[in-house]
Structure formats: structure tokens, C-alpha cells
Write a protein that binds this DNA or RNA. Structure first.
Lengths: 193, 193
DNA sequence: CTCCAGTATCTAGCGCCGCTAGAGATTGAG
DNA sequence: CTCAATCTCTAGCGGCGCTAGATACTGGAG
């Protein structure tokens, strides 16, 4: 009984090790540098071991992405709860989102540009994902007006996502980032009309 | 003299052929299906010929992307010039942008998700790129208010880009797309506050 | 204590990728 | 007709994700 328990514990530990190694390697050198061979070498197991834990490389990326969603949700929550008033909360949460994308580009990539196999806009989506979306919804509640909160949150999310991905891809100059973010929020938080 | 001219003509023709084949293959099966081997087979030349025209696969994708920018700019221009009033023009251009991304996902990918080697927010950027950005700027002019037109255009572009990429990646449900687009424009075009 | 079954892990290899070196064919000038 | 320059091809390199089959190991039964 306890033998199987120990094995299971070891198994879980190794799985965590793989996810951590993948995340570190991706953050250090980008996802194109994360190959199953390098990953196996890093965790000091042979390549096929990875496939006894994950269906393939995509599944490993998805696991890293789930971690990322939890981190992002936590950072947005911290920004929201420590703000002095609702307007400031919106600005802080948006800034936290942008900074997250900036500081953890590989993680952000896994979450939003790759790993399509995760369920997203459904109840089956990972809890961390719902948590992150909830942060957006809560910070928007005071300015929702007559608009549906969910749709409003989706649109704000889109705006932030567009800003950070276009900037990261070199499509937008970094210099005006703050200006763009401020303008988005100003137009967004303004009177509904 | 005319011999070299003919050779140059053939060279240009073959280059166009390669770009067209790459685009067709990408639109039919996605970029991951566009391999140098398949591409070479399709244009009925050997693989190394591709490398006498383009530095690598990325350069081929960049060439396809430039074509895409021209197409997108033309579609936005058509939408803008055939609209009855400024507000309608904004809505039509935004819809045209979203429809382009929806109808030509592979092209959109090459333009905005990959091929980082193109110059973007600089004078050296391809003319088609400037043309597209100009469409956004022009359609926004009537509602710019005190905001900088360039920054405003960048933010609208970000919003649209976010909407279409998140939807295409399965992060946003397709059903509310129209609603989201309308909300973005409403908040965006509303009084500056 | 021995043996065996079942599990865990590894070595080796498949078919593919982007890319390139060097051979061979082709071409136009003298 | 010859030759040098140019163009194009065949063949191959190292690396990719992934997997089949061999091998080592472990814990329980007799």
C-alpha cells in the first residue's frame, strides 16, 4: 500500500520537476529552445520518460501555461486589492497585466499564443483561468454601466492582449507603451454614452 | 544584354511563383504544413532553389506577409470610402479588419504572429504597412478629440488584434464576437471625457 | 533464499525538419 | 569547338517529436 503511495509521490515530484525545468528553459531561452531532448537531459531522465507523464510537448506547455494563469491571476488580484479607489484599481490591474506579459514573455506565450489544447471559455477551464478572468470582471464592475460585464471584460482583455503582443512582436514601438495603455483605459473607463 | 534581362524576368517570375505557392499552401493547410520540401515540389524545383531567392523560410513568410498587408489595406480602404458617414466608416473598417483575419487566418498569422524580421514601426517598413495604418488613422480622425492620432490608431489596432487573435486561439467564444466588436467601438468612439 | 511477474526505464531508431556543400549540367562568349 | 561561368541538382548534416522493443529492477509467492 505505502509502496504504491511512495511511487505515486515520486511520480508527482518528477512531473513537477519536468514542468519547472520546461518553464525555466523557456523563460531563459524561449520555447523554440525547449526540445524534448534538452528537457530530458535537464531532469536527468531519458526522453521517453517525458511521454509517460505528458502526451507530448504540447501537453508540457499546457501544464506550464496553467501555472502561468495562476501567477497572472495572483498578480492582478494583488493589484486590485491594494488600490485605493475603483478607477485606480482598473489602472493598476491593467498595468499588472502588461507587466506580467513583459516580465514573463515565455510564460505569456504558452498561455496565449500556443497550447491550443486547453479548454478556455468553458466551465472545464482550469480554475486559475477563471480566477484571472474574475479579476478583470470585478475591477470593471463599477464602470460597466449598461454593458454586460462578461463582454466588457473580454474586450478589455483583448485590448491589453493586443497591446502587449503587438509590442512584443515589434509591431508597436515600446516608447509609447504607457501612453497607449493610458489612452485605452481613458476611452474605456469614460462615460458609456 | 537582353539575355540577362530575360534571365532576370524568369527569376522574378519564379520568385512570385514561390510566394504564391507558399501562400496557397499556408491558406489551405496552415504554416506548419509549409515545409521547404513541399514548397519545392509544388513549384517543381529542387529545395536549394528556394535559398537562391530567399534567405530562409522566414524570408518567404515575410514576403507573403507583405502581400497580406497590401490586401488588408485595400479592404480597409474600400470599407472606409464606401461608408456613408464617419461613424459608419469606423464600424465598417473595424469589421473589415476582423473579417480579413477570419477569412485569411494563415495570411494574418504571417503578418502579425510570425516573421519578426520585417521592419514595422519605422520609415523602412513596407509601403503596404503604412497604407494600412493610414486607413486606421483616417477613419479615427473625426473622433480623435484631444488624443494623438497615431497613438489612438495603435490602440484601436491593438483592440482589434486582441479580439481576433484571442477568438482564433479559442480563448474567446465566437458567439459574442459581434457584441464584443460593437462594445469596443462604442467605448472607443464615445465622448472623450 | 529463490524465482518470477510486472513495472520502470533505457537504447536505438523512424520519418520528418531547415539548410548547405559539392557534383554535374547548361549556357553564351571567344 | 572550347572553355569558363552560371545555374541547378543530388546527397547529406544535425536536430526535431515521438515510439518500439530490449533491459534492468522491484517486491511478493513458494
Amino acid at each position: 500500500m505505502s509502496i504504491q503511495a511512495r511511487r505515486e509521490r515520486e511520480r508527482v515530484g518528477r512531473e513537477r520537476l519536468i514542468i519547472r525545468a520546461a518553464r525555466e528553459l523557456a523563460e531563459a531561452e524561449g520555447w523554440e529552445a525547449v526540445t524534448t531532448r534538452r528537457l530530458a537531459e535537464r531532469v536527468e531522465y531519458s526522453q521517453p520518460v517525458l511521454y509517460s507523464h505528458f502526451k507530448g510537448k504540447d501537453a508540457i506547455m499546457a501544464a506550464v501555461a496553467v501555472e502561468g494563469f495562476a501567477d497572472l491571476a495572483a498578480e492582478m488580484r494583488a493589484a486590485r486589492t491594494s488600490a485605493s479607489d475603483p478607477e485606480q484599481a482598473l489602472a493598476d490591474v491593467a498595468a499588472a497585466y502588461a507587466m506580467f506579459a513583459e516580465r514573463r514573455p515565455a510564460l505569456y506565450d504558452a498561455m496565449f499564443n500556443q497550447a491550443v489544447s486547453l479548454p478556455f471559455a468553458t466551465p472545464e477551464a482550469p480554475a486559475a483561468l477563471h480566477a484571472g478572468f474574475d479579476e478583470l470582471r470585478q475591477v470593471l464592475r463599477p464602470i460597466a454601466g449598461n454593458d454586460n460585464e462578461d463582454v466588457l471584460a473580454e474586450v478589455l482583455w483583448s485590448g491589453l492582449h493586443g497591446l502587449v503582443t503587438l509590442m512584443r512582436g515589434g509591431r508597436l514601438p515600446r516608447e509609447q507603451h504607457e501612453q497607449r495603455l493610458a489612452l485605452l483605459l481613458r476611452r474605456f473607463a469614460g462615460p458609456t454614452g
